[in-house]
């Protein structure tokens, strides 16, 4: 099984000079390809900070984060941008689509940054929109889409570049239960059929229930990590907590 994320002794300290606050404290985390993992914990437990560290959006004060064999803690800011573009897909809580672009253009945007040829871009985007069930909304602006539809476009954007894994920060937080369930179905199916690795930070019980692995953070430390269930592409997607 291929290790996608390998974090060793990762710590992030705020106010290091005065009263140090450990947002993430000596965390060890290993994620295999194809995992569908939820990072849970109370507010302030360090979920988003850990997600930011793994996503290369922030630098740890100590420890190493190795993604696909590359220690991202040693990369410069510019190298990190490039690394994120090629290896990590992001889904944010508030969708964060570019309002002036259509749904298709939003998803295509990442591919334009990657300088993917137009024909290949169209092929990929059309396939992705079919998978997320929005083939009829390709040319709609975000403002014309519902919250659930916008988040599905955000998933399409995250997946367009064929990343090593997708980091989703509270992806269902702004959605009603039907849209959230719909979104989770899509992500679970992509995980099952395409073997795409997902790591969520969430409070949402519906996400936790669908996750194969649940990592609980308390005060910046992993307090519980349910046994990682080996994933095979044939395995049915569990709707129960593992």
């Amino acid at each position: 099984m291929q290790t996608v994320i390998d974090a060793h002794n990762v710590s992030k300290v705020y106010n290091a000079d005065t009263i140090p606050v450990y947002a993430v404290n000596n965390v060890h985390l290993h994620l295999q390809k194809g995992e569908f993992t939820a990072l849970v914990g109370p507010s302030g437990s360090g979920k988003t900070t850990l997600l930011n560290l793994i996503g290369g959006l922030d630098k740890p004060d100590s420890g190493n984060i190795i993604i696909n064999g590359v220690d991202i803690t040693t990369l410069s800011a510019n190298e990190l941008i490039n690394f994120r573009l090629k290896n990590i897909g992001f889904v944010f809580q508030s969708f964060n689509l570019i309002p002036v672009l259509t749904a298709k253009e939003n998803a295509e945007f990442i591919l334009q940054l990657q300088k993917v040829h137009r024909k290949e871009r169209i092929k990929r985007i059309e396939a992705l929109f079919k998978q997320i069930g929005l083939s009829d909304k390709l040319n709609e602006r975000p403002a014309k889409l519902s919250g659930g539809q916008q988040q599905r476009v955000a998933v399409a954007r995250a997946l367009a570049s064929r990343p090593q894994f997708v980091l989703a920060d509270e992806p269902t937080a702004n959605l009603d239960s039907r849209s959230a369930s719909n979104l989770l179905d899509i992500m679970a199916r992509l995980n099952k059929e395409e073997g795409i690795t997902f790591l969520f930070s969430t409070h949402d019980q519906r996400v936790i229930d669908r996750a194969r692995r649940v990592i609980t953070l308390v005060d910046g430390q992993i307090s519980n990590d349910t046994a990682a269930v080996p994933v095979t592409h044939e395995a049915p997607v569990s709707t129960e907590k593992s």
Partner: peptide
């Protein structure tokens, strides 16, 4: 501000 942060996060180079 948020949009710019998001664009850099998803991999848009600052020079672009």
């Amino acid at each position: 501000k948020f949009e710019i942060g998001m664009l850099v996060a998803i991999g848009m180079k600052k020079i672009k």
